[in-house]
């Protein structure tokens, strides 16, 4: 009836549909952006309509939402959190700070561009992005997933040396446990 290629295509469509409509978010509330998440989740904007829901631990999560600036100290925790998540996993950079440092661009202990340390799938710009912008960012991520273009985890695995080099450059006291992720 079906050959292997067609069958795997159908399976991919089902998988991507499920992945797209079930995004469990671990929100890393590092900066001021975390305050935009409660209105996104509660009755005014209700992100649960799109299957977006908070997850309690990184092991269960699909999306790492990095809300705002990252200091060197928190970057270490973010990297550990990201590496504990199970593939396929996506990163959303939230706010200007993750794109170019934003208002912290000349700070001595924050990172400027998140993309050098973790593979970002979608950026949401603004300072602050309102809940509408957050939801539109999630919908952009859903589009990327259904097209099969949200391959952040794959990029991270393939360019691990480059990412590690950048990470080690910033984090001076590099004592990270080895995960078998």
């Amino acid at each position: 009836m079906f050959n292997d290629k067609e069958a795997s295509k159908i399976v991919d469509i089902i998988k991507n549909f499920a992945r797209k409509h079930s995004l469990w978010v671990v929100a890393y509330g590092t900066g001021c952006g975390a305050i935009e998440l409660p209105p996104t989740m509660t009755s005014r904007y209700d992100a649960e309509r799109f299957g977006i829901r908070g997850s309690a631990t990184p092991r269960q999560a699909d999306v790492l939402l990095i809300t705002g600036y990252l200091s060197v100290k928190t970057l270490k925790r973010v990297i550990r959190t990201y590496e504990q998540m199970q593939e396929p996993k996506y990163v959303i950079g939230f706010g200007s700070c993750t794109i170019n440092g934003g208002m912290y661009w000349d700070s001595y202990n924050t990172i400027k561009a998140l993309d050098r340390y973790l593979p970002v799938d979608v950026y949401i710009n603004g300072c602050m992005p309102r809940p509408e912008a957050v939801i539109s960012g999630f919908i952009k991520l859903q589009q990327l997933i259904s097209e099969g273009k949200a391959d952040g985890a794959k990029r991270y695995r393939e360019n691990l040396e480059w990412y590690r080099e950048n990470q080690r450059k910033v984090i001076k006291n590099w004592r990270m446990p080895e995960y078998n992720w």
Partner: peptide, 21 residues
């Protein structure tokens, strides 16, 4: 709130089973 569709949990479970690692 408006809430997720009634088949949301099925999608969640399919997604969890299709995790690659």
């Amino acid at each position: 709130r408006f809430g997720p569709p009634f088949y949301q949990n099925i999608l969640d479970i399919i997604k969890l089973y299709s995790k690659e690692s």
